[in-house]
């Protein structure tokens, strides 16, 4: 027999249990909101895009992707980190395009092979042409285009 002498008041007991559950759930939910929110929030923050200089037009050879390393200083939690992004600048005719060098398969860094005139990924054999289109291998999509503009022969890319 339970050591309970208020057994007669079963409805009251049920009510109390619901109140207890609600209050504890409320405290737990408040803590979960604050701690969970603070833990999750930075995951969804995005850096503002910046236009960074990436050399000048006369430096580029016709039809040959030129890899340019961009340094992006950004605040990283409490500290600062310099990200290095490599983009290919490709001049064909008068047109200029900038391609992100990150392989669209699993994110490895591709490199331009001057012998085959193709952009190759060292990880799983993805191959792209100089316009970034997939020639062979597993990449699901062409290399990402990076917005680019030219001001008085100075090349600016948006990263």
């Amino acid at each position: 027999m339970k050591p309970n002498c208020k057994c007669a008041s079963e409805p009251r007991r049920g009510f109390l249990i619901r109140v207890i559950q609600t209050v504890h759930a409320g405290i737990g939910a408040t803590l979960a909101f604050v701690v969970g929110g603070a833990v999750i929030a930075p995951s969804f923050s995005r850096r503002e895009k910046l236009w960074l200089p990436a050399g000048t037009m006369p430096q580029l050879a016709e039809g040959v992707p030129t890899a340019v390393t961009l340094r992006i200083a950004r605040s990283d939690g409490a500290s600062e980190t310099v990200d290095r992004r490599v983009v290919y600048l490709v001049k064909t005719g008068g047109a200029l395009q900038a391609l992100d060098s990150t392989c669209t398969h699993l994110g490895c860094r591709t490199r331009f092979n001057p012998d085959s005139k193709l952009i190759e990924c060292p990880c799983h054999g993805g191959v792209y042409d100089t316009n970034g289109n997939v020639v062979s291998g597993p990449p699901p999509s062409p290399l990402a285009r990076v917005p680019v503009r030219v001001e008085h022969d100075r090349i600016l890319v948006e990263v």
Binding site: N4, C5, R13, L16, I17, V19, I20, V23
Partner: peptide, 17 residues
């Protein structure tokens, strides 16, 4: 005497809240 749950837990809960 009374049972700890829910009678005394209710008092605990009110204080905690």
């Amino acid at each position: 005497g009374e049972a700890f749950f829910p009678w005394h837990v209710m008092r605990d809960t009110v204080m905690m809240a």
